[in-house]
Amino acid sequence: MNRHLVTLICITLPVVLLVIAAELIDDRLLTRLATTLCINMILVLGLQIFTGNSGILSFAHIGFMGIGAYTSAVITMPARLKSMALPELYPIMQGVQLDPLVGMAIGGVVAALVAAIVAYPLMRLSDAAAVITSFALLMILHTIMVHWSEVTNGPRTLFGIVEATTLQLAAAAAVVAAIGAYWFKESRVGILLRAVRNDEVAAAAIGAHIPLLRWRAYVLSAFYAGIGGALWAHFITSFSPNAFYLRETFVILGMLVIGGPATVSGAVFGVFSVTAVFEGLRALEKAINAADLFSSTVVGLTEIILALVMLIVLILRPGGIIERNEFGTLARWPFMKKQNSSRGE
């Protein structure tokens, strides 16, 4: 077995095991949790594709999730519901009612198209300027979602979205997403983009087209976000624009940063570990309150401890828990052929 195969197994197997566990236990709450995890995994992997390979933090990611969610929600909604849920919808779109799977695919494509247009001028920017402009972009996308009543129902909750996302569908998408993210990282564009991340001047001096490389990663990243958003829309079935703003941004960013943005393994590990810690703390909080140990109820334990974990991880390992080596090169696996030198030692 080579390192690529080991890595691919390690980043997809947890999802498969999760689905099997959920099927065996057959608990509604666990199934919902597992589905959310798979959707988050797609979002985190999407962010990894751009931020991990280019080294530029992007805050706008969740905005593209919103585009995918609204696009798919609107074009799949049954006509009779549309008149209620979206009274101001453009007449031309009132009759549109596509299959949810087609809607999700279009949601991803629309998010990618919007990214392709808005991102091109931004891709020349590096460092702080790039981060701040991505934040501005998130605010613009959020403002549009809040005010474009015709398709989003404005700041109010959009309801009546077709329920179509099953755990199996989300898990299958997450597996494909993980393989895709790893493929991108090891592709022509991925290697050159990581070269740019290491040294922009040297990359330009060998002829790398820096804005174009970043742009390609950004468009793919937005496609992931759009698909993730669409899956989420057909899972949760009602939401408002606030779902695609700062809170979700920090959850996704936190998972990536804690896991390790530079590696796909880190992104996957981040999703699973943060979800586990988050849910564990939530159960603990509930148990403490149920046992009536303190005079007042305990609130915010989850958020505080999670924030502390993030601080500790970043102080001890600024590059995240899995900083540089993918699972395939992380350890000397007994079943792998011996190599003279392993990378990154």
Binding site: I191, R197, N198, D199, A202, A205, G344
Partner: peptide, 8 residues
């Protein structure tokens, strides 16, 4: 020297 340190 300006190599791409994380790449092989």
């Amino acid at each position: 020297v300006r190599l791409f340190n994380d790449l092989s």
